[in-house]
Design a protein around this nucleic acid. Sequence first.
DNA 1: AGATAAAACTGATTATGGTCATGTTTTAAA
DNA 2: TTTAAAACATGACCATAATCAGTTTTATCT
Lengths: 229, 229
Amino acid sequence: MLEKSHKHVTCATCSARKNSLFGTYGESEVIDLNHEKMCNYYKKNQPLFIEGSFPRGVFCLNQGKVKVFTRGDEGKEQIIHIAKAGDVIGFRSMFSGEPYKVSASTLEESNICFIGKDDFLLMMDNNPTLRNGIIKELSKELGDRAQFITNMAQKSVRERLAFSLLILADIYGEEEINLTREDMANFVGTATETLIRLLKDFKEDQIIEIHTRKLLIVNRDKLLRIAGR
Amino acid sequence: MLEKSHKHVTCATCSARKNSLFGTYGESEVIDLNHEKMCNYYKKNQPLFIEGSFPRGVFCLNQGKVKVFTRGDEGKEQIIHIAKAGDVIGFRSMFSGEPYKVSASTLEESNICFIGKDDFLLMMDNNPTLRNGIIKELSKELGDRAQFITNMAQKSVRERLAFSLLILADIYGEEEINLTREDMANFVGTATETLIRLLKDFKEDQIIEIHTRKLLIVNRDKLLRIAGR
DNA sequence: AGATAAAACTGATTATGGTCATGTTTTAAA
DNA sequence: TTTAAAACATGACCATAATCAGTTTTATCT
């Protein structure tokens, strides 16, 4: 269980900050940052922001996981990205001036800090390192999405599942992968039933272990081979 | 036929510049820009850059069309984006420090200017408007790709073709859409044969006119309805 | 702890769209 | 202007994966 009070998260001691956009911040900058941010506890499945609304600031994950997704015509979610501790999300629309094109909500209970739009934009103006970090981040994601699109268009569901499991393994690190079948299907881009059948195959081929809701990858090499280059 | 000498393109009189990243440039900035750029004539199907190589600068289209694509495991192209006059391409990888994740080549004969990496980065440092324009552009594209991914994952080929034709209509403007069936299939994300069959359907439903290679949309509303929201 | 809802799973069926094989037309080059 | 190559087109067949309908298991709430 996470601590439910935000008072316990300070930027100076935030372990997630090291790998974040604010990882290069000096002591005084961290103090400023800490002053500007507000931290909140989120339950599982709580929305951070919703497609179509306008951004009021950015979210910095101290602890937990967040799915970023769009909805297709029939309301089915397509998960575009899963954010973990240290990730900063929600800044894209702030720059493009458009409403959010994606929604975000927690996949598990999380501690998430919020930095208001004005504060964040001011920081960007005054801090070339942050600015460059953001440009780099946007550019990197854009490259990743090109590959994602190609995977969607050309790989079979089996190949995409293998690919997705490898991505999920990176995101979950030491922990077991913990997603509902539906979320996983919405990440892979398939029907829930198809996903379940394929997971069963992978289990029988001793590629993964299934512990009810949780998944463990036991043969990464096989996954790499199935996923293709 | 295009003029084959680059001498005839100067930034001050470049009509494509108005809608480009450099659209807001003042007189002296335009003179600098013109001094830094080099303009070249490209034949049809000439590469600008190739996936895996490192960027040496950015390309600014004065005239013509360029496809931006990745290759899947079996070498099949997936077209991510089609750039037209005024578009600046190839800057993403310069910022992320990675090699290109996509390739680009001309779809028709084109006049394309080149601005070296150092010059471009210097311009960015000294010009907040350009910088913000780029951040905005990156952000906008990132949003578009989220939708693109969802379309790929959830729409039928028929729906995607309708959607793609609408995008192509925007890109080609007054001109007729002029792509090989293979390129169009690689944009939609389907097999060439499937694309051909669907084009025939659309023609029979009087949604498009086919003039050998060239396509004209005659019923935009029907396309909108097929494409879904 | 028991009730209720949500999620996970299974089987049968169907349709979409990919592949292969082959012929025709268009384009570009000699 | 002929010829070769590329692009376009069509038919037949098949595999993948979606849909539908239903059961079982797991999680959640009182």
